[in-house]
Design a protein around this nucleic acid. Sequence first.
DNA 1: AGTTAAACCTGGTTGC
DNA 2: TGCAACCAGGTTTAAC
Length: 275
Amino acid sequence: MPELPEVEVTRRGIDRPLRDATVLGVRLGKPLRWPLGVKPEALLGTMIGPVARRGKYLWLPLHRGNPAGGLLLHLGMSGSLSLATPVPPAGAHDHFDLETSRGTLRLTDPRRFGAVVWSESLDADPAARLLGALGPEPFDPALTPESFHAALQRRRAPIKAVLLSGAAVVGAGNIYACEALHAAGIHPGARSDRISRPRAAKLLEAVRATLARALELGGSTLRDFHDAQGVAGGFQLEARVYGRAGQPCPRCGVLLQRRVQGQRASYFCPGCQRR
DNA sequence: AGTTAAACCTGGTTGC
DNA sequence: TGCAACCAGGTTTAAC
């Protein structure tokens, strides 16, 4: 599911409720992408600090007076977090429970591409290794049309692949990359390094607008995603191209196409998206 | 070094 | 109805 808007919606839903909560228990289900990296008992009695997000990762600081580390969470392809009191009995896809004094944070993830890993800090491994290669946050003021264009210039791969890689900006996954490219009038197969300054500026603006709009609507729910309170997203109803092959382009009327590119489906309009 | 394929895993949908 | 094939929001790791 989860691209940046879904992860941020999730963060907002758990940050306040979990602030200063005490960890009372940990329950592990089936293995996720990586092992937890710490004995579950070591987490008991720690307190939860402000929940942060970097790219599509969430950072749950745990401390005992002094910062002691935290949990780095990723929702993978089908993961979602819920926070509830009392917590329902664990189902077949509930693979991590953090029982706290303010409710149980539960990761439900059918495909188990998600992860919960302990790290001493964001600057230490494994967090540093996982976050180190990420590009800039989309709403970071330091990310400018100039720096974005420069980042695109360094890659020869198709622009769609570059967006998904997060090298130039993090947060746009398959849905929002398709939507942003359409909004900017850029063909997903366009070579990254051949995108002009003005078009790069337009693309950055499109990425920002797309992610911001998705955030407003609570993200996209294709199947699994819901926020920590169980509410589904609404952006999928506003998608202009994603999942709409064969339908007319809302901008120019040409029939939308689906093309597999770098083992991911791209949805685009051959009429108004140019290379 | 940069780009592309394979892998991880489950379940829903589609088509024969 | 049954079953195989294909598809799905991500990202690391291995292979060209």
